[in-house]
Structure formats: C-alpha cells, structure tokens
C-alpha cells in the first residue's frame, strides 16, 4: 500500500471536468485507489464520491493505492493534480 498527500491546484478544484479526468485516470490502473479529504474516504472509481468531497482549489487530499501498479497510479494522479488538469483557461 502506498499513500501520498496531494494539493489540488486547479482554479476550480476537483469539480466536473477535473474530477472526470481524475476518475478516468484512476480507472486506467488495476490498483484499488481511495481518496480521503477531511476524514471522508471514497473510491476513485466513483465520480459522485469524488465530487462529493468538495475538494476546492488548494484543498489537501490523501490518495491511497493498493495493487501491483500502485506507485505508477499515484504518479499519474499527482501529475494530473499538480499541472492543473482540465482548467477553464
């Protein structure tokens, strides 16, 4: 199991488009990936769960992956979050 604490850099946070990309990216990996914010944990396969975290700009989330490709999965998600995915320009 690997875990990483990440900061959401998008202007609008993990809302519709960024959350969609986040979920799509997570789905590319075999590992079970969970994300936690302020004590609530959801599965990353679950877009409503991810949206319901209400992770706005600069909020801190904990991403946890378990499986064969766990570190690759975390790398991909981290890149996504730090490069400001799916921004409205």
């Amino acid at each position: 199991m690997t875990a990483r604490t990440l900061t959401v850099h998008n202007k609008t946070g993990l809302h519709a488009r960024p959350a969609t990309l986040f979920v799509q990216t997570a789905a590319r990996f075999k590992s079970k990936i969970e994300v936690t914010r302020e004590g609530r944990t959801v599965d990353t396969k679950n877009i409503l769960g991810v949206l319901s975290l209400g992770a706005g700009k600069n909020s801190v989330i904990e991403v946890e992956a378990e499986g064969a490709d766990e570190s690759a999965a975390l790398d991909a998600l981290e890149t996504l979050l730090t490069t400001g995915i799916g921004q409205e320009e």
């Binding site: 519709a16 488009r17 959350a19 969609t20 979920v23 799509q24 877009i47 409503l48 769960g49 799916g86």
Partner: peptide, 17 residues
C-alpha cells in the same frame, strides 16, 4: 469545452454508488 460536461454525465450514469 462545453461538450466535456457530457463526459461527466456518462460517468454519473455508470457510477457505482
């Protein structure tokens, strides 16, 4: 850009919760 919202729609339809 506007069309991308429908990708989210499709994910809602498949959402396990």
């Amino acid at each position: 850009k506007e069309a991308e919202i429908f990708s989210a729609y499709e994910m809602f339809l498949d959402d396990p919760t």
